[in-house]
Simulated assay, not measured.
Amino acid sequence: MTPHANTHPGAIGRWRTLPSAGRRAAVSLIVMLLAWELIAHSPRLFGFEVPYLGVLPAPSAVIGEWVMLLGDAHYWGSWYLSFTRVFAGFISALLLGVPLGLWFAISPTMRNLFFPVFEMLRPVPPIAWVPAAIIFWPTQELSIISVIFLGAFYTITLNTYNGGRRVDLAIIQSARSMGASRSNIFRRIVLPGTLPSIVAGAAIGMGITWEVVVAAELISGGNGGGGGGLGLFMWDAYLAGNHEQILVGMLSIGLAGYFSSGLLRRFGGLLTPWLSRN
């Protein structure tokens, strides 16, 4: 190598430095966008319209609409409202679901008394609680947050419970035989053994909250001022016949859920370094 050789990698070099999972994700995204663009232009390119999918606006039109919305305060206000609702509902579910799941796992009395009720209520979809939430809570904002809370609560609680039940009893009995107290067993054995399940439940629950917030905002009507969240943003786009904005709202929710769950998994990896893979 000469002293002045260029050591900066080009586009091919940067592509090769990406993890294999990142390359696969990029390829799948590019293929999907190209197929979508071809389907959207199928009447002009092929002389016929692809059933159902052919009525979708092309991704180039959606991206153009999205770029225009980046300077729209109403769009970012919708983002802000949905994000704050998701954050409030998810944190509430985490703070209540993790202790309850651990309590179910370590206490036979608690499990026998209350777990059947939990299992009976768990199959009820969060959206089914919207009418009751609107009646029960004094404000629409609280009703939306309560429905979001239910969306994450059952998943977090059940994953925590299952993780606690899978902790090896032989380890617990060995610790007891060596004089470990119940608090030490919980802090040093039960809680670390349950953490992977808590992280998995939290990541799944975060995805569910972004699904629920849209329906809750659509049904309850938002807060009526400054934008009603991404759910009402999409509904207003539908009423206006703006299909591009509908897809912008859908993609916004997808990105929000993807990155929120990814951040939770990354944080969970820091909490459980013994599970990291090379």
Rank of each mutant, 00 (worst) to 15 (best):
L169Y: 00
L169A: 14
L169D: 11
A170E: 14
A170R: 14
A170Y: 03
A170D: 14
I171T: 09
I171C: 00
I171S: 12
I171W: 14
I171L: 14
I172S: 09
I172F: 02
Q173D: 15
Q173A: 05
Q173Y: 12
S174I: 11
S174F: 10
S174Q: 12
A175S: 13
A175H: 07
R176N: 04
S177C: 13
S177E: 05
M178R: 12
M178E: 01
G179P: 12
G179E: 10
A180M: 11
S181L: 01
R182Y: 03
S183W: 15
S183D: 07
S183P: 01
N184M: 09
I185A: 14
I185S: 13
F186V: 11
F186R: 09
R187N: 09
I189T: 13
I189R: 03
V190L: 15
V190R: 04
V190H: 02
L191H: 04
L191S: 03
L191K: 04
L191E: 02
P192N: 11
P192G: 06
P192R: 10
G193Y: 14
T194G: 07
T194E: 02
T194S: 14
T194A: 11
L195S: 01
P196G: 09
P196C: 12
S197A: 15
S197V: 04
I198R: 07
I198G: 05
V199N: 05
A200D: 08
A200M: 07
A200Y: 01
A200K: 01
G201F: 11
G201K: 11
G201M: 06
G201S: 07
A202W: 02
A202V: 09
A202Q: 04
A203W: 10
A203F: 10
A203Y: 08
I204T: 15
I204P: 06
G205N: 09
G205E: 03
G205M: 11
M206Q: 05
M206A: 14
M206I: 13
G207E: 12
G207K: 09
G207T: 13
I208C: 10
T209K: 06
T209H: 08
T209Y: 07
W210H: 09
E211F: 14
V212T: 15
V212E: 06
V213L: 07
V213P: 04
V213I: 15
V213N: 10
V214T: 13
V214R: 07
V214Y: 11
A215G: 07
A215N: 04
A215H: 03
A215D: 05
A215W: 02
A216N: 06
A216Q: 05
A216S: 13
A216I: 07
E217W: 02
L218M: 11
I219A: 10
S220E: 00
S220G: 00
S220M: 01
S220C: 02
G221Y: 06
G222C: 03
G222F: 01
G222E: 00
G222V: 00
N223M: 03
G224L: 05
G226A: 09
G226I: 03
G227A: 02
G227N: 05
G228Q: 03
G229K: 04
L230S: 01
L230K: 06
L230W: 04
L230G: 08
G231A: 11
L232V: 02
L232H: 01
L232T: 01
F233L: 13
M234K: 09
M234L: 10
M234Q: 15
M234I: 12
W235N: 15
D236G: 02
